[in-house]
Design a protein around this nucleic acid. Structure first.
Lengths: 349, 349
DNA sequence: ATGAAAGCGCTAACAG
DNA sequence: CTGTTAGCGCTTTCAT
């Protein structure tokens, strides 16, 4: 095993003491200078920094963390769910959050560790965190409890089931009700333009309701349909269920005039199923979908609702966290979404 | 600022000493027990572990890291490139690598930090790493140098430009030449089946050659075209260039019989451009593409080449790293790719 | 304004 | 087999 002091022949790791000696000051002064703290003569600080630079000094994060109790590491966490559904729905979204969070965090001098702890691994696998982002927490989420027990500030992306939350906990989420209603308004209007008749039926392709986002989507869908006298059909993909199977069933059995999908995995499946059933989009069925992963290729025949700018939930969540950590302001955020209507009503060739 | 000992009223942080006292042994014994090291009586170990469990003891990673010099943190790093091209091409791939690496790392007791350091941020922003995965390193990559200077083991995903590498450096990459040749063989065969004539021209939609993957793809494309007497047209998206613009140019100006794209962003642009130009896929132009992001929706009219199993480069890279860290075996890996031929030669409706 | 020294939590020599 | 002890690199009183 490698010894503490030894970092390989490549680089005689330079410590704070080396800088102190080289600059002719004490380690305390070096520390003060590097952290812009206490009263250090401007000239001294300048010299110390110059010497440190010259030596390639890099404060050791472990030493600092041990002393201060802060790691400047944020966790992006999502409960691991051992099902194909998880892969289809959470993973793509999770991926986007991670990279967005990583990029935003860096601008504030933080790092991001990504983890999807299986039940057993939980504690062992998470480094000491200054804060955490939990993606679509479940009801009674083990990760949330874990963080709460350790006093780790946390932002729930998507919100908490039932809205319950403890101290040091924040929320970032889209205004689900508003945009679901907006996209259904758009759909109804498209249907009317095409057929001259009001929309009569709509289907929701959703997952099992285990998180706030799913619950909110279904509630918004149902309330809109009720308010607009549209026949509402909700079909949930059960854990272990096959996406293509459900898509086919929705189209073949229900024959709705419009379908709204929780994410692009589902709308992708609908697209395939429509082709198999020789149903035209949007001629035979209007298709709309939430766009949860920035990367998925958009189908121009589909109405999407997507995060309105580069300012997606991942970045927003990090800023909430950093703000809390550095200024003790604890607040929630709503991220803006916008409609991206279908642009190619003409069939793809 | 929070004091070291204090972790909030929620949890009186339990240290190794607490466990030692409660178990009636010394801290050394607790440490040994927890790390399965040295000679500890089985009964003692069992008792210590039980007591620790009861108290909710969780070894402090900072303390451990300070002492051992190891953090059990791996970095997934990619040079930040401040251009739209970066967003289109590297970011999606980077995202996939991060989440794959995070999941694999956890199974080995490591965490993954994701960072895309801008030139200035470099050193400041990266935690102390036990190892690093650098995604498609540039020639003379700053991150690679940074790690080399600190003796941090590293795996280059995609390989090094020019193949040059230092000690402690490993490589994971796809067998680019083979699969590019395979997909072009397939394309030629499809063309022959459709038209009865041999393929006469093919275009490559690529990026500026700055990394190994891009260089290898272009080399393989060119060599195949030369060997098969196919007219080769290579068009690179320059930094700052518009993807849609290039796609249109390739189709409108070159009018190739087939196009191969470096990633799905490019093939997505070709699909849109084809629609705008009223060119049918595959009727007027055969389209093939590398599938670099697992999440992108596949167009059934396109031939893809994709990572052959869940065992993608992210997971493989982590295993290489862990293997080196724990067993000092330094080896490279090749990840398998497979063809996913177009499944719907009939037009989408 | 600066330095000396204590100690964060842990592991690894070394004694016993 | 187990305990004592010395520090890993850093920050932070407390003197000076």
């Amino acid at each position: 095993m490698k010894e503490p002091g030894e970092a390989g022949p490549e680089s005689p790791r330079v410590r704070i003491k080396d800088v102190a000696v080289a600059a002719g000051v004490s380690t305390a002064t070096v520390s003060l200078a590097y952290n812009n703290k206490g009263e250090v003569a401007a000239a001294t600080r300048k010299k110390v920094l110059a010497v440190g630079e010259g030596l390639g000094y890099q404060p050791n994060p472990s030493g600092r963390a041990l002393r201060t109790g802060q790691t400047r590491i944020l966790g992006v966490l999502v409960s691991y769910r051992d099902s194909p559904v998880w892969q289809e729905t959470y993973l793509p979204y999770y991926r986007g959050i991670i990279s967005d969070a990583a990029i935003e965090a860096m601008d504030h001098g933080y790092s991001v560790v990504a983890a999807s702890p299986k039940p057993g691994n939980l504690a062992e696998s998470i480094a000491q965190l200054d804060g955490a982002i939990v993606v679509d927490p479940l009801d009674n989420d083990a990760i949330v409890d874990h963080c709460a027990a350790r006093g780790i500030p946390l932002v729930a992306d998507g919100g908490f089931v039932g809205g319950r939350r403890a101290d040091k906990q924040m929320v970032v989420r889209g205004d689900v009700e508003r945009y679901v209603h907006d996209i259904l308004d758009l759909t109804a209007q498209q249907h009317h333009t095409r057929t001259g008749r009001p929309l009569g039926s709509a289907a929701l392709f959703t997952g099992s309701i285990i998180d706030r986002y799913t619950a909110d989507t279904e509630a918004a869908f149902s309330s809109w349909c009720a308010a607009n006298a549209v026949d509402a059909r909700v079909t949930a993909l059960e854990p272990g269920g096959a996406v293509t199977e459900v898509a086919r069933r929705i189209l073949a059995t229900d024959r709705p005039e419009a379908v709204y999908c929780l994410n692009e995995s589902y709308s992708g499946a609908i697209i395939s199923a429509a082709r198999a059933l020789e149903l035209g989009i949007p001629d035979d069925v209007l298709l709309s979908s939430a766009a949860t992963s920035e990367q998925a290729i958009r189908d121009p025949r589909v109405n999407y609702v997507e995060s309105a700018d580069a300012e997606g939930p991942g970045r927003r969540a990090v800023r909430l966290l950093v703000n809390y950590l550095e200024s003790a302001v604890q607040e929630d955020a709503t991220v803006a979404f916008r409609l991206r209507p279908a642009v190619a009503p003409t069939p793809l060739r």
